[in-house]
Amino acid sequence: MFEAPGLEPLPVSSAIDRAVFTRDYARPRRPVLIRGAVAHWGALARWTPSFFREHFGDRPVRVEGRSLSFGELVDAIEASTPSQPAPYLHNHYIYHHLPEVVADIEPLPEIWHGNLLQHARFPHAGLLPDGKIGLFLGGDGASFPVLHRDTFHTHAFVTQVYGTKSVWLYGPDQTKRVYPKPEVPTHSRIEHPHDPDLNTYPDFAEVRGYTGTLTPGDTLFIPAWWWHTTYMPETSISVSVNYVDATNRWAFLADIWRERDGRRPLRKVATIAKIAALAWR
Protein backbone atom coordinates (compact mmCIF):
# COMPACT_ATOMS: atom_id res chain seq x y z
CA MET A 1 0.00 0.00 0.00
CA PHE A 2 1.40 3.39 -1.02
CA GLU A 3 2.49 5.76 1.73
CA ALA A 4 3.92 9.09 0.55
CA PRO A 5 6.88 10.33 2.60
CA GLY A 6 4.92 13.47 3.49
CA LEU A 7 2.05 11.63 5.15
CA GLU A 8 1.95 11.96 8.92
CA PRO A 9 -0.14 10.10 11.51
CA LEU A 10 -3.46 11.78 12.15
CA PRO A 11 -3.54 13.96 15.27
CA VAL A 12 -5.26 11.91 17.98
CA SER A 13 -7.18 13.03 21.05
CA SER A 14 -9.43 11.56 23.67
CA ALA A 15 -12.81 13.08 24.55
CA ILE A 16 -13.00 16.81 23.69
CA ASP A 17 -15.66 19.24 24.89
CA ARG A 18 -17.24 21.53 22.34
CA ALA A 19 -15.32 24.68 23.34
CA VAL A 20 -11.93 22.97 23.00
CA PHE A 21 -12.97 21.28 19.76
CA THR A 22 -14.07 24.60 18.24
CA ARG A 23 -10.94 26.45 19.36
CA ASP A 24 -8.32 23.83 18.50
CA TYR A 25 -9.78 22.05 15.47
CA ALA A 26 -12.94 23.44 13.85
CA ARG A 27 -11.94 27.11 13.71
CA PRO A 28 -8.34 26.56 12.52
CA ARG A 29 -9.58 23.67 10.33
CA ARG A 30 -7.31 20.99 11.70
CA PRO A 31 -8.32 17.33 11.41
CA VAL A 32 -8.39 15.16 14.51
CA LEU A 33 -9.17 11.55 15.33
CA ILE A 34 -11.07 11.36 18.61
CA ARG A 35 -10.72 7.99 20.30
CA GLY A 36 -13.78 6.63 22.09
CA ALA A 37 -15.99 9.55 21.07
CA VAL A 38 -19.12 7.36 20.91
CA ALA A 39 -18.30 4.73 23.51
CA HIS A 40 -21.86 5.16 24.80
CA TRP A 41 -23.53 4.09 21.53
CA GLY A 42 -25.51 0.86 21.56
CA ALA A 43 -24.48 0.38 17.93
CA LEU A 44 -21.01 -0.67 19.08
CA ALA A 45 -22.47 -3.77 20.70
CA ARG A 46 -25.25 -4.46 18.19
CA TRP A 47 -24.13 -3.57 14.69
CA THR A 48 -22.45 -6.40 12.83
CA PRO A 49 -22.96 -7.68 9.29
CA SER A 50 -25.06 -10.50 10.74
CA PHE A 51 -27.23 -7.98 12.61
CA PHE A 52 -28.19 -6.22 9.39
CA ARG A 53 -28.82 -9.50 7.61
CA GLU A 54 -30.96 -10.84 10.45
CA HIS A 55 -33.08 -7.73 10.96
CA PHE A 56 -33.15 -6.20 7.47
CA GLY A 57 -32.20 -9.06 5.17
CA ASP A 58 -35.17 -8.61 2.83
CA ARG A 59 -35.02 -4.82 2.74
CA PRO A 60 -33.98 -3.47 -0.68
CA VAL A 61 -30.90 -1.34 -1.02
CA ARG A 62 -29.32 0.42 -4.00
CA VAL A 63 -25.54 0.26 -4.13
CA GLU A 64 -23.15 1.11 -6.97
CA GLY A 65 -26.00 1.07 -9.46
CA ARG A 66 -27.23 -2.35 -8.38
CA SER A 67 -30.46 -3.31 -6.61
CA LEU A 68 -29.82 -5.81 -3.83
CA SER A 69 -31.36 -6.90 -0.57
CA PHE A 70 -29.45 -6.23 2.62
CA GLY A 71 -28.99 -9.96 2.95
CA GLU A 72 -27.40 -10.22 -0.50
CA LEU A 73 -25.18 -7.24 0.23
CA VAL A 74 -23.95 -8.73 3.51
CA ASP A 75 -23.26 -12.09 1.81
CA ALA A 76 -21.15 -10.27 -0.79
CA ILE A 77 -19.33 -8.27 1.89
CA GLU A 78 -18.44 -11.40 3.84
CA ALA A 79 -16.96 -12.89 0.65
CA SER A 80 -15.14 -9.67 -0.28
CA THR A 81 -11.41 -9.75 -1.10
CA PRO A 82 -8.95 -7.01 -2.11
CA SER A 83 -8.89 -8.36 -5.66
CA GLN A 84 -12.67 -8.71 -5.85
CA PRO A 85 -14.22 -6.26 -3.37
CA ALA A 86 -17.93 -6.30 -2.69
CA PRO A 87 -20.10 -3.28 -3.56
CA TYR A 88 -19.60 -0.46 -1.06
CA LEU A 89 -22.73 0.99 0.50
CA HIS A 90 -22.27 4.66 1.33
CA ASN A 91 -24.56 7.54 2.33
CA HIS A 92 -27.48 5.22 3.06
CA TYR A 93 -29.45 7.60 5.25
CA ILE A 94 -30.36 6.02 8.56
CA TYR A 95 -33.28 8.22 9.62
CA HIS A 96 -34.99 7.59 6.29
CA HIS A 97 -34.06 3.99 5.43
CA LEU A 98 -33.40 2.41 8.84
CA PRO A 99 -35.33 4.33 11.49
CA GLU A 100 -35.40 1.22 13.67
CA VAL A 101 -31.71 1.67 14.54
CA VAL A 102 -31.71 5.41 15.27
CA ALA A 103 -31.72 4.76 19.02
CA ASP A 104 -28.45 2.86 18.61
CA ILE A 105 -26.60 6.07 17.68
CA GLU A 106 -28.06 8.34 20.34
CA PRO A 107 -27.26 10.57 22.03
CA LEU A 108 -25.10 12.23 19.40
CA PRO A 109 -21.66 13.44 20.53
CA GLU A 110 -21.60 16.97 21.95
CA ILE A 111 -19.29 18.17 19.17
CA TRP A 112 -22.01 17.27 16.62
CA HIS A 113 -24.51 19.61 18.29
CA GLY A 114 -25.50 22.90 16.67
CA ASN A 115 -25.40 21.59 13.11
CA LEU A 116 -27.13 24.19 10.95
CA LEU A 117 -27.92 21.50 8.38
CA GLN A 118 -30.07 19.67 10.95
CA HIS A 119 -32.13 22.72 11.89
CA ALA A 120 -35.84 22.06 11.42
CA ARG A 121 -36.22 25.17 9.25
CA PHE A 122 -33.13 24.69 7.09
CA PRO A 123 -34.32 24.93 3.43
CA HIS A 124 -33.13 21.65 1.95
CA ALA A 125 -33.68 21.85 -1.79
CA GLY A 126 -31.88 21.06 -4.99
CA LEU A 127 -28.12 20.98 -4.56
CA LEU A 128 -28.10 21.98 -0.92
CA PRO A 129 -26.53 19.44 1.45
CA ASP A 130 -28.26 18.26 4.58
CA GLY A 131 -27.41 16.87 7.97
CA LYS A 132 -28.60 13.33 7.38
CA ILE A 133 -26.51 10.62 9.01
CA GLY A 134 -25.36 8.13 6.40
CA LEU A 135 -24.54 4.45 6.88
CA PHE A 136 -21.36 3.09 5.25
CA LEU A 137 -20.95 -0.68 4.91
CA GLY A 138 -18.10 -2.38 3.02
CA GLY A 139 -15.92 -5.46 2.94
CA ASP A 140 -12.22 -6.22 2.64
CA GLY A 141 -10.78 -4.25 -0.29
CA ALA A 142 -13.64 -1.78 -0.63
CA SER A 143 -12.92 1.92 -0.95
CA PHE A 144 -14.79 5.16 -1.31
CA PRO A 145 -15.25 5.66 -5.06
CA VAL A 146 -13.30 8.90 -5.32
CA LEU A 147 -10.73 11.06 -3.55
CA HIS A 148 -12.74 14.24 -3.01
CA ARG A 149 -13.54 17.23 -0.87
CA ASP A 150 -17.08 17.94 0.23
CA THR A 151 -19.04 20.63 -1.56
CA PHE A 152 -20.12 23.94 0.00
CA HIS A 153 -17.26 23.96 2.52
CA THR A 154 -19.05 21.62 4.92
CA HIS A 155 -17.13 19.91 7.71
CA ALA A 156 -17.66 16.16 8.17
CA PHE A 157 -17.60 13.64 11.02
CA VAL A 158 -16.88 9.97 10.24
CA THR A 159 -17.54 7.55 13.09
CA GLN A 160 -16.46 3.92 13.12
CA VAL A 161 -18.85 1.32 14.54
CA TYR A 162 -17.48 -2.07 13.47
CA GLY A 163 -14.15 -3.20 12.04
CA THR A 164 -11.52 -0.73 10.89
CA LYS A 165 -11.15 1.82 8.13
CA SER A 166 -8.02 3.46 6.73
CA VAL A 167 -8.27 7.17 5.91
CA TRP A 168 -6.21 9.71 3.96
CA LEU A 169 -6.54 13.49 4.26
CA TYR A 170 -4.85 16.28 2.30
CA GLY A 171 -5.20 19.98 3.07
CA PRO A 172 -6.40 22.64 0.65
CA ASP A 173 -2.78 23.61 0.02
CA GLN A 174 -2.24 20.19 -1.61
CA THR A 175 -4.91 20.67 -4.26
CA LYS A 176 -2.54 20.79 -7.25
CA ARG A 177 -0.82 17.59 -6.12
CA VAL A 178 -4.09 15.62 -6.03
CA TYR A 179 -5.00 16.54 -9.62
CA PRO A 180 -8.60 17.84 -9.46
CA LYS A 181 -10.85 17.05 -12.38
CA PRO A 182 -11.45 20.18 -14.48
CA GLU A 183 -15.08 19.19 -14.99
CA VAL A 184 -15.65 18.29 -11.30
CA PRO A 185 -13.13 20.32 -9.28
CA THR A 186 -14.14 18.69 -5.99
CA HIS A 187 -13.05 15.27 -7.33
CA SER A 188 -9.51 14.04 -7.92
CA ARG A 189 -8.43 12.20 -11.06
CA ILE A 190 -6.53 9.79 -8.80
CA GLU A 191 -8.87 6.85 -8.30
CA HIS A 192 -6.94 4.96 -5.62
CA PRO A 193 -4.65 7.06 -3.38
CA HIS A 194 -3.56 3.87 -1.63
CA ASP A 195 -2.29 2.53 -4.98
CA PRO A 196 -1.73 5.52 -7.28
CA ASP A 197 -0.41 5.62 -10.84
CA LEU A 198 2.64 7.79 -10.23
CA ASN A 199 3.64 7.69 -13.89
CA THR A 200 0.43 9.52 -14.76
CA TYR A 201 0.31 11.61 -11.57
CA PRO A 202 3.95 12.16 -10.55
CA ASP A 203 3.30 15.14 -8.25
CA PHE A 204 1.24 12.88 -5.99
CA ALA A 205 4.49 11.32 -4.79
CA GLU A 206 5.20 14.63 -3.06
CA VAL A 207 1.77 15.05 -1.48
CA ARG A 208 1.59 16.09 2.16
CA GLY A 209 -1.18 15.07 4.52
CA TYR A 210 -2.34 12.65 7.18
CA THR A 211 -3.24 9.00 7.35
CA GLY A 212 -4.63 6.81 10.09
CA THR A 213 -6.97 4.01 11.08
CA LEU A 214 -10.41 4.34 12.64
CA THR A 215 -11.40 1.69 15.19
CA PRO A 216 -14.84 1.15 16.77
CA GLY A 217 -15.94 4.16 18.80
CA ASP A 218 -13.63 6.63 17.04
CA THR A 219 -14.79 9.82 15.32
CA LEU A 220 -12.73 11.56 12.65
CA PHE A 221 -13.22 15.29 12.12
CA ILE A 222 -12.60 16.30 8.48
CA PRO A 223 -12.42 20.08 8.17
CA ALA A 224 -14.05 21.95 5.32
CA TRP A 225 -12.25 21.77 2.01
CA TRP A 226 -9.88 18.97 3.00
CA TRP A 227 -9.42 16.19 0.43
CA HIS A 228 -10.16 12.74 1.81
CA THR A 229 -10.95 9.14 1.01
CA THR A 230 -11.08 5.76 2.73
CA TYR A 231 -10.10 2.12 2.24
CA MET A 232 -11.38 -0.95 4.07
CA PRO A 233 -8.73 -3.54 5.06
CA GLU A 234 -11.56 -5.65 6.55
CA THR A 235 -15.32 -5.53 6.92
CA SER A 236 -16.28 -2.05 8.11
CA ILE A 237 -19.42 -0.32 9.36
CA SER A 238 -19.41 3.42 9.96
CA VAL A 239 -21.61 6.49 9.83
CA SER A 240 -20.95 9.99 8.56
CA VAL A 241 -22.58 13.41 8.65
CA ASN A 242 -21.85 16.82 7.12
CA TYR A 243 -21.75 19.82 9.40
CA VAL A 244 -22.06 23.62 9.31
CA ASP A 245 -21.65 25.94 12.30
CA ALA A 246 -20.16 29.35 13.05
CA THR A 247 -16.69 28.19 11.98
CA ASN A 248 -17.62 27.56 8.34
CA ARG A 249 -20.96 29.31 7.74
CA TRP A 250 -19.45 32.24 5.81
CA ALA A 251 -17.70 29.93 3.34
CA PHE A 252 -20.84 27.76 3.15
CA LEU A 253 -23.04 30.72 2.21
CA ALA A 254 -20.45 32.05 -0.25
CA ASP A 255 -20.38 28.69 -2.02
CA ILE A 256 -24.17 28.61 -2.26
CA TRP A 257 -24.14 32.10 -3.73
CA ARG A 258 -21.63 31.05 -6.39
CA GLU A 259 -23.02 27.63 -7.24
CA ARG A 260 -26.79 27.76 -6.98
CA ASP A 261 -28.81 27.96 -10.20
CA GLY A 262 -28.25 31.43 -11.65
CA ARG A 263 -31.37 31.21 -13.77
CA ARG A 264 -33.53 31.78 -10.70
CA PRO A 265 -31.74 34.61 -8.87
CA LEU A 266 -34.70 35.62 -6.71
CA ARG A 267 -35.11 32.08 -5.42
CA LYS A 268 -31.36 31.90 -4.69
CA VAL A 269 -31.45 35.15 -2.74
CA ALA A 270 -34.47 33.94 -0.77
CA THR A 271 -32.76 30.63 0.07
CA ILE A 272 -29.57 32.33 1.22
CA ALA A 273 -31.58 34.82 3.29
CA LYS A 274 -33.36 31.95 5.07
CA ILE A 275 -30.09 30.20 5.83
CA ALA A 276 -28.42 33.41 6.99
CA ALA A 277 -31.32 34.13 9.34
CA LEU A 278 -30.82 30.70 10.96
CA ALA A 279 -27.03 31.00 11.05
CA TRP A 280 -27.04 34.29 12.93
CA ARG A 281 -29.75 33.51 15.47
Rank of each mutant, 00 (worst) to 15 (best):
S69M: 03
I77L: 10
L73K: 01
D75H: 08
Y93F: 13
E78M: 13
Q84T: 15
S80R: 01
S83R: 15
G71H: 06
D75F: 07
L68C: 02
L68Y: 03
G65P: 06
E100S: 11
S83G: 15
P85D: 11
V101C: 05
E78Y: 09
A79K: 14
H90E: 07
I94P: 01
I77V: 14
L89D: 00
H97C: 10
S80G: 13
Y93C: 00
A76L: 14
L68P: 00
T81S: 14
G65D: 10
H96K: 13
Y88D: 00
A86W: 06
H97P: 02
S69P: 04
P82I: 09
V74S: 05
A79L: 13
R66L: 12
G65E: 09
L89H: 05
L89K: 00
S80F: 06
Q84C: 15
T81A: 12
A79R: 14
A79I: 08
A79E: 14
E64A: 12
H92D: 04
P82K: 11
G71T: 06
N91R: 08
L68R: 02
A76N: 08
E100V: 06
E64G: 08
N91G: 09
H92R: 05
E100M: 07
H96L: 13
R66F: 05
D75S: 11
G65Q: 10
H97W: 07
P87I: 07
F70K: 00
A79T: 12
T81C: 12
A76M: 12
H90L: 11
H96P: 01
E100P: 03
A76T: 08
I94A: 00
V63H: 02
P87G: 08
E100L: 07
V63L: 03
P85F: 10
F70V: 11
P85N: 12
L98K: 05
I77F: 05
T81P: 10
Q84V: 14
E64I: 06
A86V: 09
R66Q: 14
E78N: 13
Y88P: 00
E100H: 07
I94K: 05
T81F: 09
I94W: 05
P82L: 12
G71W: 04
I77Q: 03
H92V: 01
L89V: 04
S67M: 05
S80Q: 09
P87M: 10
L68G: 02
S83C: 15
L98R: 03
Y95N: 13
Y95M: 13
P87Q: 09
V101D: 04
P82W: 11
E100N: 08
E64K: 07
E64C: 08
F70M: 12
H92Y: 11
A79M: 13
L98F: 06
G65S: 10
H97G: 04
I94G: 04
I94Q: 03
Q84H: 15
E64L: 07
G65A: 10
Y93N: 04
S67F: 04
L73H: 01
A76Y: 01
R66I: 04
I77T: 02
G71R: 04
V63I: 09
H92E: 03
S67P: 00
Q84F: 15
D75A: 12
L68M: 09
L98P: 00
H90P: 01
E78C: 11
G65N: 10
Q84P: 10
A79Q: 15
